[in-house]
Amino acid sequence: MNFVEIRVPSALCPVRIDQYLATLKEPEISRSYAAKLLKEERILLNGKPAKASTKLKAGDVLSLDLPAPVALDVEPEDIPLDIIYEDQDVLIVNKPKGMVVHPAAGHAQGTLVNAVMYHCGSELSSINGVMRPGIVHRIDMNTTGLLVVCKNDQAHKSLAAQLKVHSITRRYVAIVIGNLREDEGTVDAPLGRSKKDRKKQAIDELNGRPAVTHYHVLERFGGAYTLVQCTLETGRTHQIRVHMASIGHPLLGDEVYGPKKCPFDLEGQCLHAQVLGFIHPRTGEYVEFSSPYPAYFEELLTKLRNKYNS
C-alpha cells in the first residue's frame, strides 16, 4: 500500500475532488482511476470517505490509500497487427473490427493488448499500474481504425496531456441513417453513464462531462443514409454514436443506440477512426497518420452508391 496525504491549495478551489486529483503530477491519477478509488473508499476527505462530486475548499486534507500496482496477468499472443508506424516511443496500429482493445470480463484473450505485448515485449508504458500497458485511448470493439500505443512512460504522459487539453487530431468517418439537413454542424452535449442502462452512455446536462463532436457531410445516399466525417473535440465513451443518435441520425449497424434491425449484414456500427495526429513526444513535431476505409466499409459504400446514386 502507498499512503499519501495532500492539503488542498486555495488557488484551485472550489473544484470537484475527481477533477483536482486528475491535476496532480505525483501521484499521477486519471479521473477514471480516481473514480475507482473513491468507489472503494480509498480516498478520505478530512478523515471521512469522500465523494467525487464534493467541492474542495482551501485547506481540506485528502488522504489517499493507493493499492500496490497489480501485476499484469495477460498473456502475450502472436496476433497479426496492422502497423501503420513504429518508433522507439509510439506504435500506431490500425485496429480491425471485432477486436477488443484491452482485456475485460468475457475478453481475456485476443485483445489488442495481448497482441501488442507479444510485439513489443517489455517496451510498454505502465502509467497507474493498470491492466492496459501502453494504452492511452481506446475505440469500441466494432469500431475500426487508428490507435496510438505508448512504449514508455514519457510518451504516455505526453499523449495523455495532449488528450486532456483536446489537442490530438481525431477524425472518424461514419455512415448514419437518414439525410442530414445541413452539410455540417456541431453537437455540443455533455455525456455520462445512462441512468436507465449502466452499459450505455447518455446525454446528461446536469452531471455529464463536456463532449463536442463536429460533423461534415461527405456523401448522401438518397434520403436513406449519409456518409459523414466526425471530428472529436473531446473523446468520451461512445461519443460519436450517442451524439449522432441524439440528432436523429444513429450510425448504421449500431444496435445499441439505433434500430435493432439492420438491412445489411453488419457487425456493429459503421465507424472508422481514419485520421490521428499529435505532437510527437520526443521530437516535438506534429505527426499525422491516416487509414483507408476497411473492406466492409468500401463494400457497403459501393452497394449504397449503386442503389441510390447510380
Rank of each mutant, 00 (worst) to 15 (best):
R220E: 08
T143I: 07
I177P: 01
S122H: 14
F289H: 05
N2E: 14
K151M: 11
S291D: 10
V136A: 12
E299V: 14
F278C: 01
R7W: 08
M117E: 08
E77G: 03
V176Q: 02
M1I: 13
C13H: 03
L146R: 10
A155V: 09
P67T: 10
E182V: 10
I279D: 13
Y225V: 06
I92G: 04
D265N: 13
A104C: 15
L300G: 07
F297Q: 04
H280C: 09
A161S: 05
H119V: 06
V136K: 05
V101P: 02
C262I: 09
L24E: 10
A22Q: 09
R241D: 03
G110M: 03
G284K: 02
K303L: 15
L38V: 08
H243N: 02
G223S: 09
E182F: 08
F289A: 01
R181P: 05
T143Y: 08
M1W: 06
D89Q: 12
E75V: 11
S10A: 14
A174L: 01
R236I: 03
C150K: 01
L301H: 06
I127A: 03
V61C: 10
I43E: 11
L44Y: 06
R7P: 01
P210E: 00
L24M: 11
S126W: 05
I79S: 10
C120K: 00
R241H: 03
R42V: 14
E205P: 04
N142P: 07
Y293M: 12
D82R: 13
E299Y: 07
D65K: 09
E182Q: 11
E5K: 14
V70D: 11
V275W: 07
K48G: 04
A108K: 14
V256I: 13
E75W: 05
I175Q: 05
L271I: 03
L56M: 10
P133V: 06
R241L: 04
K48Q: 12
L12P: 00
Q274L: 02
C120W: 09
K25G: 15
S246M: 08
R181K: 13
L271K: 04
P27D: 12
Y118Q: 02
F221R: 07
L21Q: 01
G59W: 09
P9E: 12
A295Q: 15
V212N: 00
R220K: 12
L64I: 14
A273V: 00
Y257K: 02
K307L: 13
S246T: 13
L300T: 13
M131L: 15
A105R: 07
I175V: 14
E288P: 03
G268N: 04
